[in-house]
Amino acid sequence: MTHAADFRALSELLTGEQPLDQATADAHRERLARHFPADVDRLIDAYRAAVGQPDPGAALFTAVNADPALARLARETLAIWYTAQFTRPDNTQDAPDTPSRYRAGLVWKVISAHPLSAAPVPGGYGYWTQHP
């Protein structure tokens, strides 16, 4: 498997969302790699080691929590999938790269809402009176 495919696969384990979009995974991986250049490959290595375990997700979870740098990158990997935004090593924020990536953040779907400033389609006046 390639780095690209493995990053997407480990993202699916971390987020519990499947399938994730490969192009989005590539963009997220490149953004993270710019700020965590050494750790992205190590996270992928941890995934490759975990994938052969009986419960790959649990194995990856255990592996990243045993290594503070990997735990941090796993956190930012979740953040970028949920919000298209993450915290850089210097604690500044890395903004969503495009409006569409912002709108594709997982958080909105998980909380049964829609991205703020992007009403649901179909929707229209009064959709909010109904149970989602």
């Binding site: 384990l13 519990g16 979870f61 929590n65 503070p68 956190r75 979740l78 949920y82 958080v107 909380i111």
Partner: peptide, 28 residues
Amino acid sequence: PSLAVDKLMWDPAAKKLKHYGTELQDAL
């Protein structure tokens, strides 16, 4: 909502993940 994601997935004192996967989705 973004802060809620972080609070549910991350233990800032231990610097470890708390939840991931569908468990994190459900908690959120």
